[in-house]
């Protein structure tokens, strides 16, 4: 028995709680999306996508805990690394046209 199904309070398990938390983080991501779409500057958009990326890493990690699949944490790791790469590439592109990497 793991912690995920050990604590059953009024029919709700930790799994249920983590799924709700993942949904709440997604709702927050939808809020941040406004800044990515609206801008007004490219720096705002890069910043918003960076925050969204951090948020996605958190969602992926919570999903891996909620679904009981610790190996899914690898996806969060890959995403954290590539999100960094994406932010660097876009930032460099906006500063010096043509220099991507």
């Amino acid at each position: 028995m793991s912690v995920l199904d050990a604590a059953i309070v009024a029919g709700y398990t930790v799994t249920d709680f983590l799924l709700v938390a993942a949904a709440a983080f997604t709702v927050l991501a939808i809020g941040m999306l406004y800044r990515a779409v609206k801008g007004p500057t490219m720096q705002d958009r890069v910043l918003a996508v960076n925050v969204l990326g951090t948020n996605t890493v958190v969602i992926l990690a919570i999903l891996s805990a909620a679904l009981g699949e610790p190996t899914f944490l690898d996806i969060a790791l890959v995403y954290a690394l590539l999100n960094f790469l994406m932010a660097i590439a876009i930032s460099k592109f906006t500063v010096e046209r043509g220099g991507v990497l």
Partner: peptide, 27 residues
């Protein structure tokens, strides 16, 4: 915020080591 959320994930999956693997199908 991300640090706290990841700490929650660590507390949920990373405590008993192999126990989590057995626990997952039990869910």
């Amino acid at each position: 915020g991300a640090g706290f959320a990841l700490a929650a994930v660590a507390a949920a999956v990373g405590w008993t080591g192999g126990g989590v693997q057995d626990g997952a199908p039990a869910v």
